[in-house]
Measured scan of single mutants.
Amino acid sequence: MPSETPQAEVGPTGCPHRSGPHSAKGSLEKGSPEDKEAKEPLWIRPDAPSRCTWQLGRPASESPHHHTAPAKSPKILPDILKKIGDTPMVRINKIGKKFGLKCELLAKCEFFNAGGSVKDRISLRMIEDAERDGTLKPGDTIIEPTSGNTGIGLALAAAVRGYRCIIVMPEKMSSEKVDVLRALGAEIVRTPTNARFDSPESHVGVAWRLKNEIPNSHILDQYRNASNPLAHYDTTADEILQQCDGKLDMLVASVGTGGTITGIARKLKEKCPGCRIIGVDPEGSILAEPEELNQTEQTTYEVEGIGYDFIPTVLDRTVVDKWFKSNDEEAFTFARMLIAQEGLLCGGSAGSTVAVAVKAAQELQEGQRCVVILPDSVRNYMTKFLSDRWMLQKGFLKEEDLTEKKPWWWHLRVQELGLSAPLTVLPTITCGHTIEILREKGFDQAPVVDEAGVILGMVTLGNMLSSLLAGKVQPSDQVGKVIYKQFKQIRLTDTLGRLSHILEMDHFALVV
Rank of each mutant, 00 (worst) to 15 (best):
L248S: 04
D86V: 12
W208R: 08
P273I: 07
L230G: 05
G246C: 02
Y223H: 02
R276S: 02
L77C: 08
Q7V: 13
G20M: 15
K25G: 08
R161V: 08
E128L: 11
I240L: 02
D234L: 09
R121D: 04
P41L: 14
H218L: 05
C275N: 04
R161D: 02
F112V: 04
N216L: 06
R196Y: 09
H232S: 09
D79S: 12
H203F: 06
C165T: 06
E144K: 13
G162V: 02
I264N: 11
A231Y: 06
H17V: 14
P21F: 02
A107T: 06
G57C: 14
I219A: 05
P49L: 02
E128A: 05
Q242I: 14
A253D: 09
D249Y: 02
A38W: 04
D234R: 05
E4S: 11
R164Y: 13
A71I: 13
K75S: 12
W43Y: 11
A8W: 02
R164G: 02
S175K: 08
A48L: 02
E187V: 07
A159S: 02
P46C: 07
Q222V: 07
R18D: 14
S50P: 09
I214M: 09
G151M: 02
V90C: 15
G259R: 14
V160R: 13
S3M: 09
V206S: 08
S23Y: 13
G162S: 02
L105K: 04
P64S: 07
A130E: 06
A186S: 02
K269A: 11
I152F: 06
E9G: 10
K177P: 02
L241T: 02
D221W: 06
A195S: 05
P273C: 13
R45Y: 02
I122W: 02
P200R: 10
E131S: 12
K137I: 10
Q55F: 04
G153F: 07
S61R: 14
S27M: 13
K108R: 02
A155F: 10
I261C: 09
D86C: 06
V118T: 13
A186I: 05
L77V: 10
K271L: 09
D35I: 15
A226I: 09
P12D: 02
L268G: 02
V204H: 09
G162F: 04
R45L: 14
H65F: 05
I95G: 02
R209D: 02
S27C: 15
Q222G: 04
P6L: 12
H22S: 04
M89V: 10
M173C: 10
R58H: 13
P88C: 11
P33T: 09
K177L: 05
H66N: 08
M250V: 05
S19T: 02
A130R: 08
E128I: 14
G139F: 11
A158V: 08
T87G: 06
V10F: 12
C244L: 05
A195F: 02
G258Y: 13
Y233R: 02
G14E: 07
G274R: 11
P192D: 10
R224Y: 02
K82L: 07
P145H: 04
V204G: 07
S19C: 02
C15N: 02
R121L: 04
A207W: 04
V90F: 02
K177I: 02
D133S: 02
I264Y: 04
A159E: 09
I188N: 08
N149C: 02
N93L: 14
K119V: 02
P273F: 06
L251Y: 06
A159C: 06
G259F: 04
K271W: 08
R266L: 02
N212A: 05
P215N: 02
